[in-house]
Design a protein around this nucleic acid. Structure first.
Length: 526
RNA sequence: GGGCGCGUAGCUCAACGGCAGAGCAGUGGCCUUUUAAGCCAUUGGUUCAGAGUUCGAAUCUCUGCGCGCUCACCA
């Protein structure tokens, strides 16, 4: 099908001839481009500049239902996207969807005349945006519907959206047929996914509500929201590989931050006593159902508090968010019923690992001894022989304890050598005041009483440097400016970090981080 | 990065060594209260890409690409 001489489509942008234009579009798209031409030939603007709308779909329906008994007329202008069309001779039905929901449109030759109805049936498609003016009424089968007296195209759709159809079964459940389901397509073309899967839009509305609730909670407790650099001359605050980039004018390599920690704690030095940030972290590591290279993190730092106070604030905050977004403390995640009502269970890490693995790591003060114990007790397991004591403990944690932590649990008191920014427990140099919150078997948050002794901190950086000497990429760089800040004096404080994506997964019962990210990282196409 | 699996029409999926199909969407027709509207007719394919085995490949083998699951990595 060749474009006619008065074709208005922009195939000049290809800078090529007719043949390439033909290859650029699918047969369905070519048909729609022809319709576009016909519309324009008929003097109809396919992309008008302005639209009118008096009501959202739900408002129009509600207003009609309120006035239905006394028979008052409800005249409205609705605007939305065509999701279904049913032409039947001299009448037609369609459903449009707007920001609030769907509403049915009813077209009749009586009001519109044959030509206008034919125009609608022939040249309008699923996916087009339209504006429709008329009077609300109820059809024979009971659906509140707009009786259209006039309509107008607002934007023509060239590429066909998946024409998903909702079937309502006798028991009321809705089955969607031919919905866009391919996970790759849904993620790559999130715009199409959002357009045809309303529950995806709902997921992201709820995500926004979760972030809003976190802010409300912290704001109301005197925390100041701040923004610290994403582009940093030096990365730190976590053990992760960074993304490296380059500033041309400064001729200097820069890193995308892997955490906010060191900058937020600088603010405590500056007498900002309660600070938090919600923003993006970047970690140049593997991608999985719970890892995306960029992810949203919440961190707060609270002067004069310790990790026990942070624990209390955490359970209050998470339950507040659940209550405010879902209206309940009881959530479902996969097959689990989870109760977020505070207080949460508190379990000392040593105790938890002893109970689930039969190994008391306190009896094994060196990596060698702990490694031997694991090999003897669990011969089929193969921990890394080069692992530090802390990493072996972490291994036991994820192997034995983590899967059992379904109901919200604070696991506390961590080995010092995997926690270089946390403060030791008085009288116990091997253990730090740190906890992680676990729900549904995965780590939700991580917090500790922050190390505020600049000399100890310098020592820890040096130790980390040694531990990672063999692996440059994971080496924890010495942040001299951070130490300089600490030397001015940092108040004792409790700090906290939580993955907002993971919290969203938990609260919304989504089992992949991609379901809660609008545009997850994907390999480039082709 | 390793292992396993998947990739067929715009969407959802069949065909599993022997003519590449269905439903929806699309196109033409009938139909003035339908709603997965219905009925009649009909269009649409580089079976992800490339190579190989075979008389014959969507199907078997290899390579590549992409995605999913899983393991590793990830305080």
């Amino acid at each position: 099908m060749a474009p006619s001489p008065n074709f208005h489509g922009n195939w000049g942008r290809l800078g090529v001839g007719l043949e390439d234009w033909m290859a650029e579009y699918t047969s369905l798209e070519k048909i729609r481009l022809q319709k576009l031409e016909e519309l324009r030939a008929a003097g109809i603007e396919a992309y008008p500049t302005r639209a009118r709308r008096s009501h959202l779909s739900v408002e129009a329906i509600a207003e009609f239902e309120a006035k239905e008994k006394e028979g008052g007329e409800v005249r409205v202008i609705l605007a939305g996207r065509i999701r279904a069309m049913r032409a039947m001779g001299k009448i037609s039905f369609a459903h449009i969807e707007d920001g609030a929901g769907k509403v049915q449109l009813f077209f009749r030759t009586n009001e519109l005349g044959k030509e206008r109805l034919d125009l609608f049936n022939r040249l309008f498609d699923i996916g087009d945006f339209i504006e429709a003016e008329g009077v609300m009424f109820r059809t024979k089968s009971g659906e509140v519907t707009l009786h259209v007296h006039d309509f107008k195209l607002l934007a023509k759709s060239i590429s066909p959206l998946p024409a998903a159809k909702d079937e309502t079964l006798p028991d009321g459940t809705v089955v969607r047929h031919a919905a866009l389901e391919d996970p790759e397509l849904r993620a790559r073309q999130r715009y199409a996914d959002l357009a045809v899967n309303p529950e995806v839009r709902e997921t992201f509305r709820k995500r926004a509500a979760i972030v809003r609730a976190l802010r409300e909670f912290l704001d109301s407790r005197g925390f100041l929201e701040v923004e610290t650099p994403i582009l940093q001359p030096l990365y730190g605050g976590a053990a992760a590989r960074p993304f490296v980039t380059h500033h041309n004018e400064l001729d200097q390599d820069m890193y995308l931050r892997i955490s906010f920690e060191l900058y937020l704690k600088r603010l405590l030095v500056g007498n900002l006593e309660r600070v938090y940030e919600i923003g993006r972290d970047f970690r140049n590591e593997g991608v999985s159902f719970k890892h995306n290279p960029e992810f949203t993190q919440l961190e707060f730092y609270w002067a004069y508090a310790d990790y026990l106070q942070v624990m209390e604030l955490t359970e209050q905050m998470v339950s507040y968010v659940a209550q405010s977004v879902l209206g309940t403390y009881k959530i479902r995640f996969k097959e689990h019923e989870i109760d977020l009502t505070p207080p949460w269970r508190r379990l000392e890490m040593r105790q938890g690992i002893l109970e689930t693995s039969g190994i008391d790591f306190a009896q094994h003060p060196t990596a060698e001894s702990l490694f031997q114990a694991i090999r003897e007790k669990h011969p089929r397991l193969t921990p890394d022989p080069k692992a530090t004591r802390g990493k072996l403990i972490d291994f036991l944690l994820s192997e034995f304890l983590e899967p059992t932590l379904i109901q919200p649990t604070f696991l506390y008191n961590y080995p010092r050598d995997i926690s270089p920014l946390a403060k030791s427990i008085p009288g116990d140099p091997l253990t730090v005041e740190r906890f992680e919150g676990y729900v549904a078997g995965f780590e939700l948050c991580n917090a500790f009483t922050e190390l505020n002794d600049p000399l100890d901190q310098e020592q820890r950086f040096l130790e980390m440097g040694r531990d990672y000497a063999a692996d440059d990429e994971e080496k924890h760089p010495m942040d001299e400016d951070y130490l300089r800040a600490m030397r001015y004096g940092m108040p004792p404080n409790g700090g906290f970090g939580m993955g907002v994506d993971r919290l969203t997964m938990l609260l919304l019962d989504k089992h992949s981080i991609r379901e809660v990210l609008l545009f997850p990282a994907l390999r480039k196409e082709e």
